[in-house]
């Protein structure tokens, strides 16, 4: 039992999981930058890579709406 608890602790310390959405394949660097900073602003940004132009967000509804309104404005 002690071994099992130790393994369980080990795994929890070593691995953190967050459910959400990976945003990728942006048309332009600007589109990436805008959506990424919006995600950060509303507190859903979990991970990002400016180099690879990808980010991971915990929620997508507001980001989807933001993209839609951005597309409309263009």
């Amino acid at each position: 039992v002690v071994d099992q608890i130790r393994l369980w602790q080990l795994e929890n310390e070593r691995m953190r999981t967050t459910a959400g959405f990976l945003f990728k394949d942006f048309d332009t660097p600007d589109e990436y930058a805008a959506l990424c900073s919006y995600a950060e602003e509303i507190g859903v940004l979990v991970w990002k890579s400016d180099r690879r132009k990808m980010f991971f967000a915990s929620k997508m509804e507001q980001l989807r709406d933001y993209l839609k309104s951005r597309k409309k404005a263009e």
């Binding site: 691995m15 967050t18 959400g20």
Partner: peptide, 17 residues
Amino acid sequence: MVRAIRGVLIECEPAIK
């Protein structure tokens, strides 16, 4: 065209990865 793919982000040390 930007895509949003549903998944789970895993953060771990390189050995586990």
